[in-house]
Design a protein around this nucleic acid. Structure first.
Length: 569
DNA sequence: GGAGCTAGCGCG
DNA sequence: AAAGCGCGCTAGCTCC
């Protein structure tokens, strides 16, 4: 592998190397590496996997460890192939995709390497489908362009990141998140197949009983067809929705059968409740139980391997998803209804391990209190009072309504929508909003301020200084204002949990504590910890989460639960 | 037979 | 005139 010696010398000389892999599949569990593409300033290579593999791998490894700054495009994808080849997960690799995401996280920005390159360089990219995979020359051209563009885009982004004050987070946070996201995917979440099979049987029976009861009112009805359900509810049974809005016909030419409308019909006809229940069960079986059973059956350890993307959203939150039948979104596992909870209880720790879960407590509210300098809310957190109950007493309304008020009106919802969503008369919704802002005058001032400021200053910022350009949104219409209210809050929480993950990983590296990262759910971290270390890790987990979220005025709390599964009660 | 859309809904 | 934010997945359905 003489060629790697040359490449390494070039990398050392220039101090910079872009690396990109070609693989047989998108899955790091199934797929194999076929080529490594490398670019240094002024030169590039595409090197097919060669025998002996150990020599080839040593060559690749030497590039990471020669002291040059290594950069990838979508580092968490490329590095997810490392462990099966005995390569380490590197926590100091810069990611050109993350660079552009930090500069322009919005969804209108080009996401792919090719799209971004075409935009920045004004040159047509070689697209994957244009490449004749049998032609070594074409493969080489394609691979070299990927590496070259990764390198050039990185060089383009560096001064911009520094100029925008994003350099620190780019080199100190995002590279260290990559190994964590990869670890989550490769480790996977273990599920209790016996429990899931039992649930499936039970739910299918319920679903069937339910279907028969529904079909008494209309034989042959498919409850999963909104068109058929609308016809039954509105045309045949003439049921009334909570608001005329639901009578408006959509693209498919029928009235809305959304849950908010059907819930309201429960008092009018038995079929409404049956339909809602049928929908719930169908959703749980189809979206969760069946994929969980399928995927755990095809994995040797019965685990679910999902992708986690630390740069998957506009605001800085992570996203989670399945790729080509492998993995699924692990950030929307049911937790609210009784049936849903039974599914979540089927996520279990491996024998000899504990499931350690930590949640920030009411974190968005706390961050909002901080950002708005809301004195009353801040004091309530300091005193440890029940905010929602306090608001409910003041409005007055039910506690559950106060909660809805706090989440809706905080981010610019209007009474009309509140009234429709929660089936209240408009004056009642207005009264709630008035009560809310009477309770929190500083928050009202913050809304007024934001509305004014966002006209001239199109930037929104998190407490940690990450920023979002909102200038592409029209000033009128409210969307810019609502995003200006929400992004700093959601984005700050995202920054905090990222910091917590990084610090937790660093603590583990230093002391060699043997836990595994399982998942991240926006304000929650899940770990699998050998029994003997469970207590120590739980203590540290809580401490790191709290310390990673330094709010100057508002106290922060994280709650840790340790058990044999994700959800205990 | 697959792509792409809509409606609906799971989570924070 | 119209006005919470952020995601990903499924079934039904249309279209090519």
């Amino acid at each position: 592998m003489v060629i790697f010696d040359d490449i390494r010398s070039a990398a050392v000389r220039t101090g910079l190397a872009a690396i990109d892999y070609e693989t047989t599949e998108l899955s790091p569990l199934e797929g194999k590496l076929t080529e490594v593409n490398i670019a240094v300033p002024g030169q590039s290579w595409s090197i097919p996997v060669a025998e002996p593999m150990s020599k080839w791998l040593a060559g690749v490894r030497s590039l990471y460890e020669c002291g040059a700054q290594v950069v990838h495009w979508k580092s968490f994808f490329d590095q997810s192939f490392h462990p099966k080849y005995g390569l380490p997960l590197y926590g100091n690799v810069h990611d050109a995709k993350a660079a552009f995401w930090l500069l322009e996280p919005q969804d209108w920005a080009p996401k792919g390497l090719k799209d971004r390159g075409e935009l920045e360089f004004g040159v047509k990219a070689i697209r994957y489908h244009e490449v004749d995979q049998r032609s070594l020359r074409q493969r080489e051209q394609y691979g070299k362009q990927d590496a070259e563009w990764t390198l050039k885009l990185y060089q383009l982004a560096v001064p911009l990141l520094k100029q925008e004050g994003l350099w620190d987070i780019f080199i100190n946070v995002y590279p260290r998140l990559t190994p964590i996201a990869v670890e989550m995917r490769l480790t996977g979440l273990k599920v209790d197949r016996t429990g899931l099979l039992k649930l499936k049987k039970e739910f299918l029976q319920e679903q069937d009983d339910n279907l028969h009861k529904i079909r008494v009112y209309r034989p042959g009805l498919n409850p999963n067809s909104p068109a058929q359900v609308a016809d039954l509810l509105y045309k045949e049974l003439k049921l009334k929705p909570p608001h005329p809005k639901f009578l408006e016909k959509g693209k498919a030419g029928h009235e809305s059968t959304a849950a908010d409308a059907v819930k309201y019909m429960v008092k009018q006809h038995d079929v409404a409740g049956l339909l809602l229940e049928h929908r719930e069960i169908t959703k749980l079986i189809g979206t969760y139980i069946e994929p969980l059973l399928d995927q755990s059956a095809s994995d040797p350890r019965g685990r679910i391997h999902s992708e986690f993307n630390p740069i998957g959203t506009d605001t800085g939150r992570w996203s989670s998803y399945g790729t080509a039948g492998e993995g699924m979104n692990l950030q929307n596992i049911p937790a609210k209804t009784d049936r849903g909870k039974r599914i979540k209880k089927c996520f279990v720790a491996e024998e000899g391990n504990r499931w350690s879960r930590a949640d920030y407590q009411q974190m968005e509210l706390r961050v909002n209190a901080q950002i708005a300098h809301e004195r009353r809310m801040t004091q309530a957190f300091k005193d440890g009072r029940d905010l929602h109950q306090e608001l409910a007493d003041a409005i007055p309304c039910k506690r559950a309504d106060a909660k809805a008020v706090a989440f809706g009106y905080a981010y610019g919802m209007w009474p009309k929508k509140f009234a429709i969503k929660y089936a209240y008369p408009l004056p009642e919704a207005r009264r709630f909003r008035a009560g809310y802002f009477r309770m929190y005058p500083d928050l009202q001032a913050h809304h007024a301020c934001t509305e004014m400021l966002v006209r001239d200053d199109p930037w929104a910022r998190t407490l940690g200084g990450r920023k979002f350009y909102l200038g592409f949104l029209p000033i009128e219409g409210g969307e810019r204002m609502r995003k200006a209210l929400n992004t700093p809050v959601q984005g700050s929480v995202a920054d905090f949990i990222n910091r917590a993950l990084v610090d937790l990983a660093a603590w583990r590296d230093i002391y060699g504590v043997p836990f595994r990262f399982l998942s991240q759910v926006h304000d929650e971290i899940n770990l699998e910890v050998p029994d003997a270390y469970a207590e120590l890790v739980a203590e540290m987990l809580e401490r790191i989460m709290v310390e990673s979220a330094p709010l100057p005025d508002v106290p922060v709390e994280a709650e840790v639960t340790v058990g044999d599964r994700w959800l205990m009660k």
